[in-house]
């Protein structure tokens, strides 16, 4: 199902008939969606509805799971990403992934942020320094961390770790950011601060957020997709979905009646 949105805008991501299996479990069942450039899309739904599986299919993280099988088509700027010839590390730098639990590497703050750049082959110190500062400024941590750059990132509070992970994704110059329930491990105050960071990023990146937090989805997204059992039950402008859902299942979910 494709939501109604202006067709004149440039389509960044095209997903066609996407299926994901984990062994025999059919987790995503033929999803089709178009995401315009620099739009923020929320994937909402109950646990196990296939939101994370969709995100992981987009940047080929299912390749790491021998039990996972992906079929269908995913294109970024018209180029197929599920093909054999795709440069997967380069694809993952174009589509940065932020996990629910901060995926902080056991390195210093600085090395965490420039990790992707080093993996890309960048070694010039000035370039790395500039990228580190820029990325940390984007996540509003530069002022707090500029004197702790060479301390272990694992010693930071959880919400700062999450923002360092976002900075790591930003440092390589991505075009798409994939957030997989980014606030799930954070307290409400930290989650609010993280939302502020994501809100600031909306204007520069195409963003997909899989979230259980309906407030987060409502506040951050332009479009919302509601998923049930691996399928999109309803999609559209976020304001419309949250104020006038057409599907009774969406209405039940938004009212907290569909969690079982």
């Amino acid at each position: 199902m494709t939501p109604d949105h202006p067709t004149s805008v440039e389509i960044k991501l095209e997903v066609r008939d996407l299926h994901v299996w984990f062994d025999k479990r059919h987790a995503v069942r033929g999803i089709t969606l178009d995401i315009a450039d620099r739009k923020t899309v929320a994937l909402i739904g109950a646990t196990g509805s296939g939101r994370s599986a969709v995100l992981r299919a987009l940047n080929r993280l299912h390749d790491l799971d021998p039990a996972a099988r992906v079929e269908g088509s995913v294109k970024i700027d018209g180029a197929e990403v599920l093909g054999q010839s795709t440069d997967v590390p380069a694809l993952r730098r174009r589509m940065g992934m932020i996990f629910g639990e901060p995926a902080t590497l056991p390195l210093s703050v600085y090395e965490n942020v420039v990790f992707g750049l080093r993996a890309k082959g960048v070694s010039e110190q000035r370039t790395l320094d500039a990228a580190c500062e820029r990325a940390l400024r984007q996540v509003m941590l530069w002022d707090s961390l500029q004197k702790q750059l060479h301390e272990s990132a694992l010693s930071l509070p959880l919400d700062w770790q999450q923002r360092v992970c976002i900075a790591r994704a930003l440092a390589v110059g991505p075009e798409v950011l994939l957030f997989d329930d980014p606030s799930s491990k954070l307290d409400p105050v930290a989650a609010q601060q993280l939302d502020d960071v994501i809100f600031r990023l909306r204007r520069d990146f195409t963003i997909l957020i899989a979230t259980n937090d309906l407030h987060q989805a409502a506040r951050l997204s332009d479009l919302t997709f509601y998923m049930i059992d691996g399928e999109i039950a309803e999609s559209g402008e976020t304001l419309t979905i949250f104020s006038r859902p057409t599907d009774s299942r969406t209405e039940d979910f938004l009212a907290g009646r569909a969690w079982s």
Partner: peptide, 8 residues
């Protein structure tokens, strides 16, 4: 997974 997701 974090390292691979970061493009390594």
């Amino acid at each position: 997974i974090a390292a691979l997701a970061a493009g390594a």
